[in-house]
Structures are given as structure tokens and as C-alpha cells.
Amino acid sequence: MLRLGSVLAGGPSLLALSRAMSAAAGSSDAPGLCLAAGAAGTAVPGRDALRSNHVLLNRPTAAPPRRCGAETAVSGNAHLVFFPGDIQNFQQEMAVHADTVPWQAWSLERVALILGRRFPEHHIWVIRASHMYLHKFSCYQNFVQSNLFGAPEHSPDHGALRHLRALLANAMERAGLPDPLPPHGSSSATSSMPAGFSLVLVGFSKGCVVLNQMVYELAGARADPELAPFLERVTDIYWLDGGHPGGSETWVTEKGALAELAVSGVALHVHVTPYEVRDPMRAWVGREHKRFTQTLEDLGAKLSQKLHFEDKPASIENHFRVIQEF
């Protein structure tokens, strides 16, 4: 969660952004970067008509390994979904606001490229927050009940997992991928998953509120015939320096919810910096982080964790750099 000055409202159309992406990211380095959008650059719909998000796709840059034997060799169907933090927006939009200009290295396009180099066999999906208050505070209202500044109010039934599944299915279809997820609500959605489909979830800063909301929904989702097979394909979840402007629930501390996460078998990865977990003005963040990781360890979860830049002063620069270092 970033704490900066105010910026102006308004911004370029998605059509203009689409034309500008190659120039912003470097066309020779980003042949697979595109908006998963309709002809007019519209947002991708999710679980219902009231929930939609703009979605950026970076296609894989490396051929996936082919598996033989009992399993049929499959084409690459590995996916990574990234939820960005405050300030992070499309390059062209960040370039026109004084408070966001210094952080253009962390635009949605450039982060998609960073993640593509780290996960070259994955389709990288960057999910833009549905609302950016004052053009800098990311609000993931489609995934979790939130105030204007994006502080969440978690519950077990907001529908984050259902929205993500529907959003991915629609985005994969719009992008013309050969073996997309079945559409939300279709008869095939409960019967099978695409061959080789796997999913990694990554949240950075404010984007971690989406991961937290999904943790609260796990128990109910496992009993859902459409969501259960989708959840079984989640292999890894990464929390990268989670933070938001609320006074609590930066990290999940409810033991029942964490027990559901621990028994899922998903590999959990926690990467933080002093910017979030050692801020004396928000001491609860560090306490919650410690409780989150300790409870998961006690429950036997597959957990790895690291404090980055431990010996350096807390800074926004290093807060962002965790995206490169994790």
C-alpha cells in the first residue's frame, strides 16, 4: 500500500493504450503483450454484468516441457494471475500524472514483462483494479468489499474466486487461446478442466487483499462443483509485501480460514520488506504477518518466507523491488 499525494482523474481509452503498449514496453521485447479486450477495448466481464476488469496478457516466451508416459503430452496451459498494488496502472496513464510518473518502471505492462521473464512458460495475466480512486488507490471491489481507498471488509461469500474463474474464462476466450476454461455457469464448467491447466496467484501490496479474500472463501468454494476443480489446479500462491490503508486484516489471522489454506496442499510463498512489516506507525502489520506465517507453520502448511532488504532502510523503492526479487 503506497502513501503518496493526490493526482488527477481521467485517462486514455483502452484502445489508445492498446496502440501504445508496444512502444511503452519495447516492441522487440514484448511480442506477446496484449489487452484481453473486445473490439472497443472494453473490460472483460466476470461472474455477472456488474463485475468486469481490464486484463493484460503476456503470452509465454518459452516452450513448455512435454510430459510422456501415463499422461498425454500437452501444450502449454500454465497461467499466472497478478494483482497489482496502488499507483500501478497502464504505462500511458501513469505517464500523464505527476505522482505516478516516478513509478512508471512498475506499470502493468512492465510488470507483465518482469513476470514473463521469471515464469517464461506461463501466460501472465495482470488484473487491473476495477477502480482507481484519485488515480492511485487501487480498489478491488469486484473481488472484496472495499471502501474508496481500497481497504477491505472480508467475508466468506463475496465471490472473489467465482469472479476470478469467470474472468479468466472470458479473457482466455477473447485472447483466442486454444483450450480455455469453460464459461462460468456452463454444463462443462463442472465436469472437466482444460488439459494441463495450472494456476499461480500473485498479489503485490494492495493486491494481496484479493488473495486474503480468497482464503476466507476456501471452505465454501471446495463444496462448489464448479469451483472445486478450479481450485485443485492452483499450485502456488505468492504474497508480496501486502498492505492496505485499513487498520487491521492486512494478513489473514483467523485460524479456521488458515486451516483451510494449510490443508489445500498449495505451495505458499510470503515475501516482505521493512516498508510494510517494520513500519512503527502501522505496527499491527508486522504482528499480523508474524501471526499469519506462524499459524500456517503450526498447521503444517507448505510455506516458504523471506524478508527482503532486511539491512536497508524501509523505502517505497524496495517495496516495489520485491516484484523483481521474489
Score class of each variant (00 low, 15 high):
residue 1 M to E: 11
residue 1 M to Y: 08
residue 4 L to V: 06
residue 11 G to E: 07
residue 12 P to L: 11
residue 23 A to R: 03
residue 35 L to S: 11
residue 35 L to E: 11
residue 40 A to R: 15
residue 44 V to E: 09
residue 46 G to M: 02
residue 47 R to D: 04
residue 51 R to E: 07
residue 53 N to E: 01
residue 55 V to G: 05
residue 58 N to C: 12
residue 61 T to F: 04
residue 68 C to L: 15
residue 69 G to L: 07
residue 69 G to M: 04
residue 72 T to G: 14
residue 76 G to A: 13
residue 76 G to E: 10
residue 80 L to E: 10
residue 87 I to V: 14
residue 87 I to M: 09
residue 92 Q to S: 14
residue 95 A to F: 04
residue 95 A to V: 05
residue 98 A to Y: 04
residue 108 L to E: 00
residue 109 E to F: 00
residue 109 E to R: 00
residue 109 E to W: 01
residue 114 I to F: 14
residue 115 L to M: 08
residue 116 G to A: 12
residue 116 G to T: 07
residue 118 R to S: 13
residue 122 H to N: 14
residue 123 H to K: 06
residue 123 H to M: 06
residue 124 I to W: 08
residue 125 W to F: 10
residue 127 I to S: 12
residue 132 M to L: 15
residue 132 M to D: 08
residue 134 L to Q: 14
residue 140 Y to W: 14
residue 140 Y to G: 07
residue 140 Y to V: 03
residue 141 Q to W: 11
residue 145 Q to R: 10
residue 150 G to H: 02
residue 150 G to K: 00
residue 150 G to V: 03
residue 155 S to V: 09
residue 157 D to Y: 03
residue 159 G to P: 01
residue 159 G to D: 05
residue 161 L to N: 01
residue 168 L to V: 02
residue 170 N to I: 05
residue 171 A to G: 01
residue 172 M to E: 03
residue 173 E to A: 15
residue 175 A to K: 02
residue 179 D to F: 09
residue 183 P to Y: 01
residue 183 P to T: 09
residue 184 H to L: 13
residue 187 S to I: 14
residue 187 S to A: 15
residue 188 S to M: 13
residue 188 S to A: 15
residue 189 A to S: 15
residue 196 G to D: 13
residue 197 F to L: 13
residue 197 F to T: 13
residue 198 S to V: 14
residue 198 S to K: 14
residue 203 G to W: 01
residue 206 K to F: 04
residue 213 Q to Y: 00
residue 216 Y to D: 02
residue 219 A to S: 09
residue 220 G to M: 06
residue 225 P to S: 02
residue 228 A to K: 03
residue 230 F to M: 02
residue 231 L to I: 04
residue 231 L to N: 03
residue 232 E to H: 11
residue 233 R to A: 06
residue 240 L to C: 03
residue 243 G to Y: 02
residue 244 H to R: 08
residue 249 E to Q: 15
residue 250 T to R: 06
residue 252 V to K: 01
residue 252 V to W: 03
residue 255 K to F: 08
residue 262 A to M: 01
residue 264 S to P: 10
residue 268 L to S: 13
residue 269 H to Q: 15
residue 269 H to N: 15
residue 271 H to W: 13
residue 274 P to I: 12
residue 276 E to M: 15
residue 278 R to G: 04
residue 279 D to G: 02
residue 282 R to S: 14
residue 282 R to Q: 15
residue 288 E to N: 07
residue 289 H to D: 11
residue 291 R to K: 11
residue 293 T to M: 04
residue 293 T to Y: 00
residue 302 K to L: 12
residue 303 L to I: 10
residue 303 L to F: 10
residue 303 L to P: 05
residue 311 D to C: 07
residue 312 K to F: 06
residue 315 S to K: 05
residue 316 I to L: 14
residue 318 N to W: 08
residue 321 R to D: 08
residue 322 V to M: 05
residue 324 Q to T: 09
